[in-house]
Computed example of a mutant assay.
Amino acid sequence: MYREGEVTLLVETLEGDADIYVSSTSLSPDFDNYDMNSVTCGEDKVEIPSDMKRPVGIGIYGHPSHDSTRYRFTVLVDYFSGSESFVQGNNREESDEDVEEESILWTIFVSILKILLDILV
């Protein structure tokens, strides 16, 4: 994930037990290689601070005590956290190119997440 600002990741387990792992040093975090994780039963939540190095790798794994795991994955982005123009109260204008570039990057990010989720499920 390349998105700047604070990002909250939510994993709601629907069946089994899904756990989430996040790393700023590996795009494929796992049980042994991660910076942040949430391994509770039920809803797991990881808050990625705006100052965490990007890109960030995200891994969601089902606990081995269950034959299968189903979950709902939600990404919440705070577009204003860490934004200098917001903190200082200045108006920042975005050009069409800025919006288009952000839209393309966001589309790529969502596509990669969907592929990762398909692989993990």
Rank of each mutant, 00 (worst) to 15 (best):
Y2K: 01
A18Y: 01
T8P: 00
W106T: 10
T13F: 02
G89A: 09
E84D: 00
K45F: 10
S68I: 08
T8F: 00
N90D: 11
V46H: 13
V87A: 09
I112A: 09
L120A: 12
F73R: 08
K45V: 15
G16D: 05
F86E: 07
Y34I: 06
V121P: 04
S24V: 14
V110H: 09
M1T: 13
N90T: 06
R92I: 11
L120D: 14
I60V: 15
S65V: 02
S95L: 06
G57R: 11
F80P: 03
N33G: 02
G16R: 01
R70A: 15
S111I: 01
M36K: 08
V39I: 13
P49L: 03
E12G: 04
E84R: 03
V22H: 10
T25W: 05
G62W: 00
S103W: 00
S26Y: 01
V39F: 01
D96N: 10
V77L: 05
T74S: 04
E94H: 03
S83T: 03
I112F: 02
L113H: 04
V77Y: 07
S65T: 02
E94W: 02
N91V: 13
T107S: 12
V87M: 00
D17H: 11
E100D: 09
S81C: 12
S28V: 13
D118H: 05
F31A: 10
I60C: 03
T13G: 07
